[in-house]
Design a protein around this nucleic acid. Structure first.
Length: 401
DNA sequence: AGTCCACAGGAAGGGCAGGCGA
DNA sequence: TCGCCTGCCCTTCCTGTGGACT
């Protein structure tokens, strides 16, 4: 495309009518005015938090549910409403939301406490101080506020794996020594197993109240989609049948509302790019592919070199249909290392990396015993098969293999 | 009943980078 | 600028273990 060609393209781009009214309605940070099929949970949470309005300390809450079951949005919605009422009546109330997964803001004890202190308006260095010191800052910041404070720890399972339950234990104990204000904690997690494994003292304290969010079924997802479509797309932009299919695709993945909204948004973008006047089912299918593809290629390309090499090793074994075990991966990994001119990591480390891959959803690792012939991980790929050649290719290029 | 394989995964610590105060 | 602290990645050394084999 020459200069003038580009020019025409941009001009046309501007002239083109968008299918979207407000795209942000489909983003998962958006908090709608109504949350269909979550009335009960909102109600329950409201009951738990209401004492804050009377300057009493609400119970800690532990919320569990799969991804896309509306945990975060329900909590944000409810606390937002609570905050509105409190502000209207001059009741001191502070609500801090922290996603323990984003930007590594809270994957260590230090960073979490630093982040909390900053949220309370106290500047602290992002690293460098002894952990004890940072608690002193945090307590000082709390003392300044002298009111009810609700801390929302989203993806708290991430905090637990990274920082350990000691962090949470220390945080939960803040109330014991600090009388001028009340700290309540809302923990949100999508991994129930992990919570079962934590220190019982932490568990009982954190889950004074427990809420479990059920997954949405296809019909409920349809309601959610209809509600969002109303304000996100122009009238008639979405063809009949798209909502139903979109809900069905998302319901296939344990009723994930986030997935449903992403699907709709991406198919809208694809339709726009193709100059189609409406969103039809083929765009939806394309979006379904694209979302998987983007998620994994992004994840793979941002892995450190050694991790990439380990993944490449697994991918290159995979075409053979027999199951793969740790030993085979490690042996082959070492040979690829010499090929790529890298010093191989120890088996111990690779073992951990395989564990990370399991967590990331690249592989499915199961520990099995072959009796006399040892105990090891049985590895199968959980990447979408259609993506494997593409990812392998991408890794080969990045690793110069 | 006991052995022993081939790892899993815990504990401790080394080395390094980034950020701090002095 | 230096020494110091911490988190992170990694190694070393270690103990634990399900079940086929003897």
């Amino acid at each position: 495309m020459g200069d003038s060609g580009l020019n025409v393209f941009f001009e046309n781009f501007l002239k083109k009518e968008s299918l979207f009214l407000e795209k942000k309605v489909l983003q998962n940070s958006f908090i709608p005015e109504k949350l269909p099929h979550r009335e009960e949970q909102i109600n329950q949470l409201a009951h738990i938090l209401a004492p804050a309005l009377k300057q009493e300390r609400p119970s800690n809450v532990f919320i569990y549910g799969m991804t896309g079951t509306g945990k975060t949005v329900t909590v944000r919605y409810t606390t937002q409403e609570l905050h509105k009422v409190a502000t209207g009546r001059n009741i001191p109330l502070e609500i801090i939301y922290i996603n323990c997964k984003i930007n590594r803001t809270a994957d260590t004890e230090y960073r979490l406490i630093a982040e909390l202190s900053i949220s309370l308006g106290r500047m602290v260095p992002p690293t460098g101080l002894p952990t004890k010191e940072i608690y002193t800052h945090f307590k000082a910041a709390l003392a300044n506020k002298g009111k009810n404070i609700i801390i929302i720890l989203d993806e708290i399972d991430h905090l637990l794996t990274k920082a350990g339950d000691n962090t949470l234990y220390n945080l939960l104990r803040i109330n014991d020594e600090n009388l001028s204000n009340h700290v309540s904690i809302i923990g949100i997690s999508n991994d129930l197993n992990l919570i079962e494994a934590i220190d019982p003292r932490v568990k009982s304290s954190l889950s004074q109240e427990e809420m479990i969010f059920p997954t949405y079924n296809a019909l409920q997802l349809q309601d959610i989609l209809r509600q969002r479509i109303e304000s996100s797309f122009k009238g008639g932009a979405v063809e009949p049948g798209v909502i139903e299919k979109c809900a069905a695709l998302a319901a296939r993945e344990h009723g994930d509302a986030r997935r449903a909204l992403d699907l709709l948004r991406v198919s809208g973008e694809l339709a726009e790019r193709a100059n189609a006047g409406t969103i039809s089912i083929p765009f939806l299918d394309e979006a379904d592919d694209k979302i998987d593809r983007d998620r994994f290629t992004e994840l793979v390309s941002t892995q450190p070199t050694q991790q990439q090499l380990a993944l490449y090793t697994i991918l290159s074994i995979q075409p053979r249909s027999h199951s793969i075990f740790t030993g085979e991966v490690y042996t082959l990994y070492k040979s690829y290392c010499s090929k790529a001119g890298l010093r191989p990591l120890t088996q111990r480390r690779i073992s951990d990396i395989l564990g990370e891959f399991d967590m990331l959803g690249f592989i499915n690792a199961k520990i099995i015993s072959k009796g006399r012939y040892g105990r090891m991980r049985e590895i199968s790929l959980s990447l979408p098969p259609s993506l494997i050649p593409r990812i392998k290719q991408q890794l080969a290029e990045q690793l110069h293999l």
